[in-house]
């Protein structure tokens, strides 16, 4: 294993992580809910009365975050190397997988681990392992 020191950004990663932790903490303390993005979004597809507004507000907050960031600093643009076919396949798998597994990086990874949920620990270990293996297969076997 070699470390990519040139792209390693521990301080901004830690600072961003703290912001994510603050957001998840605010959400559980003020709204009494888990800040699980797949669950918040997926819940909009099965609308129950009075259940949609807070979901739309949270998603809206995520969508306007780049605009708010751009008011304070230069927005770093993402580098998306995947082609359209790969993005569609990835999106389908993420949508089905997070629904079936009841959570994603935020719900299981951040909130679940923060509250020491054994269920979330298993889920996080599984999606991390699958992510590592998938990138290995794509980068070092298929595109080797």
């Amino acid at each position: 294993m070699t470390i990519a020191w040139s792209t390693f950004t521990p301080w901004s990663a830690l600072a961003g992580g703290v912001l994510i932790g603050i957001a998840a903490g605010m959400f559980v303390l003020f709204n009494g809910r888990i800040a699980g993005i797949s669950g918040i979004l997926g819940g909009l597809l099965k609308p129950a009365k009075g259940d949609a507004a807070w979901r739309i507000a949270f998603i809206g907050g995520l969508l306007i975050a780049p605009l708010v960031y751009a008011l304070m600093a230069t927005l770093p643009m993402p580098q998306i190397d995947a082609g359209y076919g790969a993005l569609i396949l990835a999106g389908l798998l993420v949508g089905i997988g997070t629904s079936y597994g009841s959570g994603c990086t935020s719900g299981h990874g951040v909130c679940g681990l923060s509250r020491l949920s054994p269920r979330s620990l298993v889920a996080t270990a599984m999606f991390m392992a699958a992510g590592f293996v998938t990138v290995f297969v794509i980068r070092h076997l298929i595109n080797a």
Binding site: I80, V94, G97, G101, M126, F127, A129
Partner: peptide
């Protein structure tokens, strides 16, 4: 369900590098 769903999610995450939150932010 938990294990299978999380594995499928991880494969999708590894294909494009997007999980749900970052997808919405981007």
């Amino acid at each position: 369900r938990l294990v299978g769903g999380s594995l499928l999610f991880g494969i999708g995450w590894g294909i494009a590098g997007f999980c749900p939150g970052p997808g919405l932010v981007a």
